[in-house]
Structures are given as structure tokens and as C-alpha cells.
Amino acid sequence: MPQLDTSTWFITIMSMIMTLFIMFQLKISKYLYPSSPESKAMNTLKQLNPWEKKWTKIYSPLSLPQQ
């Protein structure tokens, strides 16, 4: 029974890894990414809700003094 020749496996595997790496790099380089990921400033007017127009204080029953 003949022996399996494994002398070329290293070169084959390394060339496959290099080829995959180059292909992925070429595929990724096609995309355009924004220069800065900061969000754009939007000029929106803040609308006040009815409960923001007046200052109120809510007392919880546990914070009231004992009677």
C-alpha cells in the first residue's frame, strides 16, 4: 500500500490562507466607510410637555413625617 505524500500540504494550506486573506481584503476595500462616526447635528426645536412647564414636587407616602 503506498504512503500518502504530505510534503506539499504546508505550501498548499499556506497558499490557500493567503488567497483567502487577499480576497477578503479586496472585498472589504470596495466599501466606503464614513470618515467620522459622529452623528450629524440636527436643529430640532424642543417642545415642552405640559408637565415640564410647571415645577411640581411629588411626595411619596414613605417620605412624609409620622403623624
Rank of each mutant, 00 (worst) to 15 (best):
S35D: 06
I22F: 08
M42V: 12
K46R: 14
S36F: 06
L45A: 13
W51L: 10
I28E: 01
D5F: 01
T44E: 02
L4K: 11
Q47G: 05
L64G: 01
F21R: 04
T6C: 10
K54Q: 07
P37N: 04
K57M: 08
K54V: 12
L20M: 14
T19K: 12
L32G: 06
Q47E: 11
A41P: 00
K46S: 08
T44K: 09
L20V: 12
K40H: 06
Y33H: 06
F24C: 10
F21Q: 05
L26N: 04
P50G: 03
I28P: 00
I17Y: 04
P34D: 01
P37L: 07
S35M: 10
M23C: 09
L48S: 11
F24W: 08
K54M: 03
T6H: 09
S35A: 13
E38V: 07
L64D: 00
I11A: 15
F10E: 13
K46C: 08
S15M: 14
I22Y: 02
L64Y: 01
T56P: 00
I58Y: 05
P2V: 06
K54H: 07
I22A: 09
P2C: 05
K27V: 01
Y33M: 10
K57F: 11
K27H: 07
P65V: 04
F10Y: 13
K54S: 08
K30Q: 06
P2H: 05
N43I: 06
I58S: 05
E52D: 05
L64I: 09
K53H: 05
I17R: 08
T8F: 11
K57S: 04
K53N: 06
M42W: 00
A41M: 04
S60Q: 14
K30E: 01
S15K: 15
I58M: 06
L48G: 04
L20G: 13
M18C: 13
F21S: 11
L62K: 15
M18W: 10
K30I: 05
S35Y: 07
S63N: 13
